[in-house]
Each structure stands twice: as structure tokens, then as C-alpha cells.
Design a protein around this nucleic acid. Structure first.
Lengths: 122, 122, 122, 122
DNA sequence: GTGGTCTAGACCACT
DNA sequence: GTGGTCTAGACCACT
């Protein structure tokens, strides 16, 4: 994993988002072992506290679980977490769509914008 | 103007959004005088500081301008502000669409979601 | 005089700036009669109060003087007013130049910028 | 940090400018922790609200970012902020130069003024 | 009368 | 412990 040291967000947030992406996309699978806090801290040359914070947040959000004395592991309930993440994003999507309608943007223009992104990602 | 006292958002944000809607929709027009800080604070039975905060946010966002000793007035450059607001929302729309793609949601599902909202508003 | 009705600033401020330009540039000369408040209000289709405010500000700033029952006239002390205006602008120029130096912009770059504007105006 | 209590500018503006200078000059670096709102308020013997206002302005201008419950930190995008600050100052420089031309000040006089400041700072 | 700043201090959510 | 919001109210400059 590479984490650029500069950016708008604190390092631990970027570590969190990085792992979330890997877990949601299936690169990291259920019960896979996460790198140990110390190991990852050395790799990224950051303070172990930073990694500790990141892992705590991942656990709170249901992405990983801790086995004391063993390490951190990817949760088996990723489908549930994923569905929640999708629901959250859909709510935001609705809010933005409503605002765009209020600002006079047409349904067609919004859909065109979404198709553009789909095209890019393929 | 009515501002419900309950809800998740802070009062000053609700005041801001309320005025933004009225200005963008044309209910409030260029150079219209805004209610004075004290007057509105009394009407809504909130602290003048809360209204002050709301008005300063509206000014920073280009919706109103201040004439010292005279009051706050609706900006004449609302078209410009509106275009900027649309640009900002489109950027967020793109970010969310990307995340939804990453979460495995298809283009069709996203577009269906948008059409649903269009249907409701009509 | 033409005053566009839309813009960032209130109308009376634009009336003020318009007259200041005309007086400083010599289009309006010492002891020239200003249009009457009512006449100008009709021409610009604004409230007479707006023009009254503008004239009061021009008087405070030393650009015009009032002869009760006769009207408003361009001041004979424009040189003095002009010198003060130049002094004020020079102070701001100094502050900005200092900030630009602090931001790492070189003397040459600043001077080039000024020459560019000189070129445009010619 | 020392903030003189006397002067024309409001306290919160002086706090803002002080930090901007330190961040732009590199004394404060990306991801450095800012003093907490309460801590700094105690140090400068001002009200926490005043520091809060200063920090919110710094955040809006892109100089710092907030991690809820953790504190304020110096942004990693200072280069971008710096370039924006330069652009803003150049625009003001142009406006003032135009006004000075209108007031009859020659290009040479303006450039001499700028060279004077360059001389002082060396 | 108008907005702008500031104090003193409370309560909240989140870590 | 941290920032965010809000009340209650004072004082200021400017119109």
C-alpha cells in the first residue's frame, strides 16, 4: 500500500479509505489477516498510533475484527457493510439530484454526466 | 420565514439554506433588502449572533452583499453564483457516482434512482 | 450617465463611483452644476433617496458642495481630493507589493504585470 | 505566538494573518497540529469563540483542516493555496494600477514605488 | 438603526 | 480532550 504524505486529509483517514476500497472491491477477503500495526507503520514510515487509529475506525465501521494476541482480520460480514455503504451513497445521490433539479438542471443533463463517468471507468 | 427548531442541522445552516433557496428561485431579487440581523433574530427567537453567522456565510457564498450601516442586500450576480453552485454539485455527483460504481452498482441502477426522483418532483 | 441595475454593489455606490471618475478625470469641472436629485432619479429610474445618498457621500468625500436652494456643484478643491485618493491607493499598492514579495513573487514579475496593464489602456 | 491587543484590525484577523504567514513561509508544515482552540485562547487571553472564528477562516481559505474530536492541522495543499493567494493579490494589483492610471499617475511613478519597497525589504 | 467584534460561558457530539 | 453551536449581552463604527 502507498499513502502519499501530502493531501487535504490526515494520514490515518487515507489509510482507512485505502483499506475500505480494497475490502469492498474484494482484493482483501473475509478473514484475511491485515498487516500488523507495527509492520504497516514501518512500511509507511508513520507513527504506530496513526495505524492504530485507522484500525479502530475500520473496526467501528464493521470492516475488520480484532482477535486479541492474533491480529486484525477482514470481517465476514462485508456484504452487510457494503449494502449499508450503498444505501448511504444513494441517499446522498438523491439529495444532490434534488438540488440539481432545483437549480434548473434537467434529468437528461444529470444522466449524461453519469454516463460520462461510466465511459471513463470502463 | 419559518425555521423549525428541531432537526439535525444547526439553526444557522437552516437559515442559510432557506435564503439560498429563496434567492436562487427568484423570490428574493437583486438588491432586495434582507431583514436586519436583529429583526430576524427577534422573529425567529434566536440569538443575533446566529443570524450574523448565517448572513456572513451567505455573503461569502456571493448571495448577498453588505452596506455598512445600511443592511444586507441580495446580490445582483445570482446567475454567476447559480452556475458555481451547479458546478459544485456536479463535482460531488461525479464523486458519488464513482464510489457507487466501485461498490458494484450499475449505471442503470444509478440512472433509475435519478429518474425516480424526477418522477416524484413532477 | 448609465448605471447597470445589476451588480455586486448597491446602486448608490455605483452612482458615487461614476461621478468620482468623471470628476477626477476632468469631464466634470470645478463649479459645474450636478444634475438635480429628481432629474437624475427620473433618468436612472431609481428612487430619489438613492441619489440623495450618493450626493451626500460625494459631499462627505469632498467631491461636491451644496448650495441650498440652488443645487449641487463640483468642488473647486479637486486637486486636494485627488492627491488624497492617490495617497490612499499608493498605501494599498505598498501593502500588496509587500505581500507579493512575501509570497515569493519577484520585483520583475510585479513590474511586468503593471506594464501589461499600461499597454492595454493605451 | 504573540498578538498585540491594540491596533485597528480585529483580533481574529490578526490571528488569521499570523498563521497564514507561518504556514506560507514553511514555519508550520503539512499535517502539523495547530494549538487547540481552548489552549490558544488561554495563551492569548481571548475568548475561545474568537479563536474558533479565526480557525474557521483559515479552514475556509484552505490553510488548515479539521479532524473532529482531534484538532486542527496544517493542510498538505499549501502550494495550491499559495498560488491562489498570488492570483488574488495580482487581481487587486491590477485594479489599483488601473485606478492610479486614471488618477494620472504614470507607469514610471508606480514602478518606482514598487522598487522602493523592494529596496527596503532586502 | 445597521452590521461587526468580542466576552463569558453552556451544552453537544465525537474520539 | 477536541471542535461546533448557541445564548445573552456589551461596545464599536458608520450612516
Amino acid at each position: 500500500m502507498e499513502i502519499s504524505k501530502t493531501g487535504n486529509e490526515p494520514i490515518y483517514i487515507r489509510v482507512v479509505n485505502n483499506f475500505k476500497k480494497q475490502i469492498l472491491s474484494g482484493i482483501l477477503k473475509a478473514d484475511d489477516k491485515m498487516p500488523s500495526v507495527r509492520e504497516l507503520a514501518l512500511n509507511l514510515t508513520v507513527n504506530p498510533n496513526t495505524i492504530q487509529k485507522a484500525y479502530q475506525e475500520l473496526e467501528r465501521d464493521g470492516y475488520i475484527y480484532v482477535v486479541p494476541g492474533k491480529g486484525n482480520f477482514v470481517s465476514g460480514k462485508i456484504t452487510k457493510v457494503k449494502n449499508q455503504a450503498i444505501k448511504d451513497e444513494i441517499i446522498t445521490l438523491r439529495n444532490i439530484t434534488e438540488k440539481l433539479y432545483e437549480l434548473g438542471v434537467s434529468e437528461k443533463e444529470i444522466i449524461d454526466e453519469i454516463k460520462k463517468i461510466g465511459g471513463k471507468l470502463k
